[in-house]
Design a protein around this nucleic acid. Structure first.
Length: 919
RNA sequence: GGGGGCAUAGCUCAGUUGGGAGAGCAUCGCACUGGCAGUGCGAAGGUCAGGAGUUCAAGUCUCCUUGCCUCCA
């Protein structure tokens, strides 16, 4: 085999090498682990084989090889902050591996690892050193076998032995584990490492002089809960070699960023920034952006879009960090999508899923970058405001609380705050801010925790039965079966208490809540968005009846019937007749088939970027979440409804077929291909509509239950559309009689409205309504104008009573009056008018509103500014007559009180109180 | 799941002991100009997210609901 020409060629060379040695080349799994809530992202090559190692899953091969995309960001392994500043930390990386599931063991693993490095990659053998487990730190002995095998290949002084911390591996606290053997390359001076085999030397102690290339894990033990170690009957091998490191060695460069995997991406960023060559201190920023663009492109291709919780939040952090670094090197425009697109160009051949998702990636990245740049702009405004305040105070220290607050509530990066502060010759204690944030973290410690862990009891049952429940429900809604297991559900734990485990029993009595498992069942267990069936279970001997309120599928095809034992007693081994609630199931069928047709119509009307993000199929409605950046317009909604209803009317039969995943893809099936399916997948076809574009139909991977013909769906009606997250829309719809009733209800209301409006037909309704609105607004204006006239004395027919008040040698004009409308707005306007009429003077208005007394005192500006009259004080003095309180500014004050009868007194005493103020 | 924050004109936002709902941009009208750009003047546009409470008085204070932003797990 020829030496790989570049970094990308290493990948294919590796896979071919092991394929030639009988391995199945398995494609990389998506970054989101299937069915494993304990793991945020796939972070090692063996993740997709986890269940194969434990024996829970069987494959038709016993040796495999893969190039697996992995991500380390968020969670326990968080290297995010190091990325870009060190030679080898990455968020996304590729792990090359070969695996043996009870097939070959140490000899072949060691031999092939060595052969690939020295003969295919042609690495100098004298620079390679290896390590084995020395028997310390774990309840397992020195790995003599591995040592002896290595000794056949390389000189003994280049074989090191280290303790469990370095050379022992385990999947979890219990389960398969074993010693491992690592291959390192000497990077120091000279051809070979100088301190071969000496204690305290070697890769475990001199990390900077060696680089780990390959880790070979030999799974030969099983660790029990007691800590005891037992030997596995069929030992396995799990190996991993980082592609980026191999590339760096092969190309003879110092850092992974200088390999062919990164250079084109880094250069793309530099081109966008208008620079080239090494950028000194700023180089790290370009590396961060390149690294994060890789992670971003792959994550989005695997169905993750940035958001505020969980995996989507990790993606958001990665993206924002990249954009933050972009601002540091002066990239001000939207640019990140172009970098991600370059990733698609470079990695699309090895990972076709990137190419398929090209538009989706670009769209999601643009949206996020726009959003974050808005966040930054908002933050900058807040910072400027704070800076202005500090300048006024003459302070030279940026407040720690403000910086922390900017970060936690506005998402404004702390380091950016510091940079701006420094530009304004202010200091910011970043350590104090970090401390403050740490303290806040303590305050917001979360309650509860963990995902929904599947209770062990269900795994035990599957293992014991050897298989799950055989599902009869595609063809039937009733059937006979044997009761295989009874589980008593765990009671709800008290607040703050850990969840309790359900318990297995052999029999149960009337009145008990039970979960029943049969060898076969027509009941559909909740999965794939479709809700579980309900119905009844009757013992064949006539004794017991169980009402089933829910059917779930906690694991591996196990259909669990939840319900209550209505009468009699039951025991494992009994025969039952199982009857699904048929009307409910039929409603579910309609909604499930309609969901498929909706998905198809959405892709047709909105575009191929539409991908399922979530789905709920219930008897009364269906809900479908999908990726789409904008809201769906009314016109689009209309077209989508029309598409679906056209398919319904064509009334084509639905078809289901079992086929291989490859054949399903070939047939154009859509579905969540990232999920783990068995060798055979079920494909549901609905439609066969003749259109100008040819035949059209919905083809989807699906395990759900469907109608026999599209026409069974009946009327399809979208009843709601909205957003659930950035870039994700939700449509809710109804079918069958439910949809008919929904439409009828609406139509009745519209008819009623039309007749109330005296509209002759529907077209007239909107016109009438508009006219009504206009009329109402006109009347409102008229009323306001009349109120104003009343308040100011009715158009001058009654002469305004202006009196002159003397006091303290000054004379001030006063108008004091009762007014019939005491609307605050009207009173202000009236006071303005009266004030203007007097030129200079004081206005006191008193009136009743909603059973309360309101007064208003206003003075002209000259009196207020000259501190001759204070409206607020005058109002306070007058309001005692209505037992109220009040106040206001010198030129305008309002007051009020409950004693309406005192209003005349207010007017009567106005002159007197004003005189007191003047004096 | 927990914490912090926001919701005011079509858009971006101001509104500081609770006491006249504002600015800029956009829209429309008028004027200047041969036309456009532009400038000037003017107008329209608001259930201050929704609901309850405190108060004589709530955009402003309290509580609830909804939506969004943001940090953390």
């Amino acid at each position: 085999m020829a030496r790989p020409a570049d970094a990308h060629a290493i990948r294919s060379a590796f896979l071919s090498f092991f394929e030639e040695r009988g391995h199945a080349a398995v494609p990389s799994s998506p970054l989101v682990p299937f069915d494993d809530p304990t793991l945020l992202f796939v972070n090692a090559g063996m993740v997709q084989f986890k269940d194969v190692f434990t024996g829970r899953d069987k494959r038709d091969y016993t040796r495999a090889t893969s190039a697996q995309r992995c991500l380390r960001a968020g969670g326990k392994h968080n290297d995010l902050d190091n990325v870009g500043f060190t030679p080898r930390h990455h968020t996304l990386f590729e792990m090359l591996g070969n695996f043996s599931f009870g097939d070959y063991f140490k000899r072949d693993a060691i031999r092939w690892g060595w052969e690939f490095l020295t003969q295919v990659l042609e690495l100098p053998a004298e620079k390679l050193v290896v390590s084995v487990f020395n028997g310390e730190g774990e309840n397992a002995p020195f790995d003599q076998e591995a040592y002896d095998l290595w000794a056949e290949i390389i000189p003994k002084e280049r074989i090191y032995a280290f303790d469990a911390k370095e050379n022992f591996w385990q999947m979890g606290d219990t389960g398969p584990c074993g010693p491992c053997s690592e291959i390192h390359i000497w990077r120091g001076e000279g051809g070979a490492p100088p301190d071969g085999g000496k204690p305290g030397k070697g890769p475990a102690f001199e990390d900077d002089k060696y680089m780990e290339l390959w880790n070979l894990v030999f799974m030969q033990y099983e660790k029990l809960a007691s800590g005891e170690m037992t030997k596995l009957p069929a030992p396995s091998v799990d190996t991993g070699a980082g592609l980026e490191r191999l590339a760096a060695v092969l190309e003879g460069v110092e850092t992974n960023y200088e390999t062919g995997l990164f250079v084109p991406i880094v250069d793309k960023v530099k081109a966008l920034a208008g620079v080239s060559g090494h950028q000194g201190e700023r180089e790290a920023s370009y590396r961060v952006i390149a690294d994060h663009a890789r992670a971003t492109a792959f994550l989005i291709a695997d169905g993750v879009t940035p958001d505020q919780t969980g995996r989507p939040y990790v993606l958001r952090r990665i993206m924002r960090r990249a954009i933050r670094h972009a601002t540091l090197v002066g990239l001000e425009d939207l640019f990140f999508h172009e970098v991600c697109d370059e990733v698609v160009n470079r990695f699309g051949e090895a990972y076709p899923e990137l190419r398929e998702a090209r538009e989706v990636i670009a769209g999601a990245v643009k949206i996020e970058e726009e959003g974050f740049r808005r966040t930054l702009a908002r933050g900058l405004r807040r910072v400027s405001k704070i800076l202005a305040g500090l300048e006024a105070e003459g302070s030279k220290v940026f407040p720690v609380d403000e910086a922390a607050d900017l970060y936690t509530s506005a998402g404004f990066p702390i380091d950016l705050t510091r940079v701006i502060a420094e530009e304004n010759e202010l200091t910011l204690d970043e350590a104090a801010v970090a401390e403050k944030l740490e303290a806040q973290k303590g305050e917001s410690s979360f309650a509860g925790g963990g995902g929904s862990k599947v209770a062990d009891v269900y795994f035990d049952i599957v293992n014991e039965l050897g298989q799950g429940t055989a599902f009869l429900g595609y063809g039937a809604t009733a059937g006979e079966a044997t009761l295989k297991a009874i589980v008593i559900p765990a009671p709800e734990p008290a607040e703050g208490e850990p969840a309790l485990e359900p318990t297995r029993v052999e029999s149960a009595q009337a009145g008990q809540a039970v979960e029943l498992i049969f060898d076969q069942s027509p009941f559909y267990g909740e999965s794939g968005g479709q809700v579980g069936d309900t119905g009844a279970l009757r013992a064949v001997d006539g004794g017991a009846v169980v009402t089933v309120t829910q059917t779930s599928k906690p694991t591996g095809g196990l259909h669990v019937h939840h319900g209550e034992l209505a009468g009699g007693s039951i025991a494992v081994g009994q025969r039952f007749v199982l009857e699904v609630d048929v009307a409910r199931r039929d409603a579910i069928r309609r909604n499930h088939s309609a969901t498929h047709m909706l998905h198809h119509a959405l892709r047709k009307v909105l575009g191929k970027h539409v991908a399922q993000k979530g789905s709920l199929v219930a008897p009364d409605r269906l809900r479908f979440d999908f990726s789409h950046a904008r809201s769906v317009t009314r016109e689009e909604t209309r077209r989508i409804e029309a598409e679906v209803n056209a398919m319904v009317l064509a009334n084509a039969p639905t078809g289901t077929a079992e086929m291989s995943l490859a054949d399903a893809k070939q047939a154009g099936a859509i579905g969540l291909f990232g999920e783990k399916y068995g060798a055979e997948v079920r494909v549901v076809t609905i439609g066969e509509v003749e259109t100008e574009a040819g035949e059209e139909r919905s083809v989807e991977l699906c395990g759900g239950t469907h109608v026999a013909r599209a026409g069974d769906v009946g009327l399809f009606k979208i009843v709601a559309e909205g957003g659930v997250a950035q870039g994700v829309r939700r449509i809710e719809a109804m079918t069958g009689m439910g949809a008919v009733e929904w439409v009828q209800e609406r139509a009745e209301v519209v008819d009623q409205v039309a007749s109330d409006l005296r509209a002759r037909d529907l077209g007239e309704v909107l016109g009438r309504l508009e006219k009504l609105h206009e009329e109402l607004a006109a009347r409102g204006r008229e009323i306001d104008s009349l109120k104003r006239k009343l308040a100011t004395g009715g158009g001058g027919s009654q002469a305004s009573e202006v009196v002159e008040v003397e006091g303290g040698g000054k004379t001030v004009k006063l108008t004091a009056r009762r007014i019939p409308v005491a609307d605050p707005k009207i009173m202000r306007e009236a006071a303005d008018t009266l004030r203007d009429r007097m030129g200079s003077g004081v206005v006191v208005l008193a009136g009743e509103r909603d059973g309360k007394a309101n007064l208003l005192v206003a003075t002209t500006k000259d009196l207020a500014k000259g501190k001759i009259v204070h409206a607020g004080k005058l109002a306070a003095a007058l309001v005692v007559h209505v037992d109220g309180r009040g106040g206001g500014r010198p030129d305008m004050a309002q007051a009020g009180g409950p004693k309406v009868a005192g209003l005349d007194d207010v007017v009567a005493h106005a002159a007197e109180e004003l005189a007191k103020q003047l004096a």
